[in-house]
Computed example of a mutant assay.
Amino acid sequence: MGITQDVEERLHRHNSGYEKTTKPYSPFELIYCVEKLTREEARAEEKRLKTTSGNRFLRNLLI
């Protein structure tokens, strides 16, 4: 999860091992993407997705 202006580039960086914190967990697949108007809105959405109900929402996308 994260905030970016270039989703394709961010996914590429994660899957190519450029990001040390995510390197051991690759490959990644994009399952949810939403555009927000402000950085504050994006941070709030990211925080919501990291809650139990947000995690449940993301898991249900995979079913």
Rank of each mutant, 00 (worst) to 15 (best):
C33V: 10
A42I: 12
E45S: 01
T22D: 05
E41L: 07
G54E: 04
R10C: 03
K50I: 00
T51V: 02
K47A: 06
T21F: 10
L62Y: 09
T51K: 11
A44P: 06
S26L: 09
T38N: 12
K20Q: 11
P24E: 06
H12Y: 14
E19N: 09
H12C: 13
E35R: 10
S26G: 10
K23E: 13
Q5T: 15
H14Y: 15
V7A: 15
N55W: 13
A42T: 04
L30F: 07
D6K: 11
T51C: 00
L30G: 00
T4E: 10
S16L: 10
L37C: 09
Y18I: 01
M1K: 08
G17P: 13
R43Y: 02
R13M: 11
R59Y: 07
Q5E: 13
L58S: 07
Y32K: 04
P27Y: 06
R39C: 04
D6T: 12
L58K: 05
D6I: 11
K36T: 08
T4V: 05
K47Y: 07
G54N: 06
L49W: 00
T21E: 12
E45M: 10
F28A: 02
T22V: 15
H12E: 12
Y32E: 07
G17F: 13
N60H: 11
L58N: 09
E8Q: 15
R13C: 13
V7M: 01
R56N: 07
K47W: 00
K47L: 12
L62F: 03
M1H: 10
F57L: 09
P24G: 00
S16C: 14
M1N: 06
V34S: 08
E19A: 04
Q5W: 08
H12A: 14
E45V: 00
G2N: 05
R13I: 04
R56P: 01
E19Y: 08
P24N: 01
F28W: 13
Y18C: 11
T21D: 15
L62N: 10
T38E: 12
E9M: 09
K50W: 01
P24H: 06
G17D: 05
R59G: 00
R13V: 05
T38Y: 06
K50M: 03
E8N: 14
S16W: 04
L61G: 10
S53C: 09
D6N: 15
T22G: 05
S16P: 04
E19H: 07
T51W: 02
R10I: 04
S26I: 04
I3A: 02
T51M: 03
R43Q: 04
P27A: 11
P27W: 01
K47C: 02
E41W: 03
K23H: 10
Y32P: 11
T22S: 11
H14Q: 11
Q5Y: 10
E9W: 14
E8W: 02
L30N: 05
P27N: 08
H14N: 09
E19W: 07
T21N: 13
E41H: 05
K50A: 01
